[in-house]
């Protein structure tokens, strides 16, 4: 079985995140980039498919040269190889543009199952896996809290507000996983050392058959044209409890005043 794990480089949540005022894309200067935290779960799930089914797992990242440490980081969990699609024309793509690049990259690779994270930690749209599924004409079993592969069938517990749907499809298929699915392991020292020499193939848009004009900021179907920082919140009322819980009365008064009771 061949598995592909698309991963994303995102600005560190703890860092100060900024947008470039000129093109309103994420300003990567001065903020540390990390492997998207949600990918720890998709990578762990792929590692389990390796352990259980001997799956061969390839990392896929769309991003510039400077994102290469993120590819190596993903490989350090014990994955086999990586493909990075790098092209200046990709910059500024929206979720659907990114999906077009990923879909074309996947068309240039061999796979049975693609394991996405359900949402990136920066944009958080959740749109990419289903959009890729539509572009490729394959099922997208998203928000998986449980994943099982039996022969050429994949079974997923697809999380929703009330619980989950048990769904199944024949491979090839795409899945996205939520954090409930597993407890990710850390990379081992051996994995970190081995990651440095795992094969990494770098491809351009031309290599995967994407026209420059079809992606990037200019081709985005949705455009952000204005942004402003969240207005600072006025200081709230903070009371010190005397150790008896009596401050709860003041809190209850406040809640009643705001009509929450």
């Amino acid at each position: 079985m061949k598995v592909i794990v698309p991963v994303k480089r995102v600005p560190d949540t703890a860092g100060e995140k900024k947008l470039d005022p000129n093109d309103r894309t994420v300003d990567r200067d001065g903020v540390e980039s990390v492997l998207c935290p949600v990918n720890e779960f998709s990578i762990e799930e792929a590692v389990r498919l390796k352990e259980k089914h001997g799956a061969e797992v390839t990392v896929l990242l769309i991003g510039p040269d400077s994102a290469q440490p993120i590819v190596r980081k993903a490989l350090s969990y014990g994955l086999d190889a990586a493909v990075q699609v790098t092209d200046d024309a990709i910059s500024g793509s929206d979720a659907l543009g990114t999906a077009r690049v990923i879909a074309k990259a996947l068309e240039s690779m061999e796979w049975d199952l693609v394991v996405f994270g359900n949402q990136s930690a920066d944009a958080r749209t959740c749109l990419v896996p289903a959009a890729v599924g539509e572009l490729l004409g394959v099922p997208s079993l998203t928000f998986a809290r449980y994943l099982e592969v039996n022969g050429d069938e994949v079974v997923v517990h697809r999380e929703h507000e009330e619980g989950w749907d048990v769904v199944s499809a024949q491979l090839p298929a795409l899945v996205s996983v939520v954090e409930a699915i597993n407890e990710p392991r850390y990379p081992s020292f051996k994995g970190i050392m081995a990651a440095k020499s795992k094969p990494l193939t770098v491809k351009s848009l031309a290599d995967i058959g994407v026209d420059d004009g079809a992606v990037g900021l200019g081709a985005a179907s949705a455009t952000m044209y204005e942004f402003e920082p969240r207005p600072p919140k006025s200081a709230g009322t903070i009371v010190d409890d005397d150790g008896s819980g009596a401050a709860a009365a003041q809190l209850a008064d406040w809640m009643a005043e705001k009509k929450f009771v």
Partner: peptide, 23 residues
């Protein structure tokens, strides 16, 4: 507390049961 409109600095096991009663 920096983003709270109302904050109680105290032991939640004292404050929350009392809050339930008050509500």
């Amino acid at each position: 507390f920096q983003i709270a409109d109302f904050g109680v600095v105290g032991d939640l096991y004292k404050v929350v049961p009392k809050l339930i009663e008050e509500l």
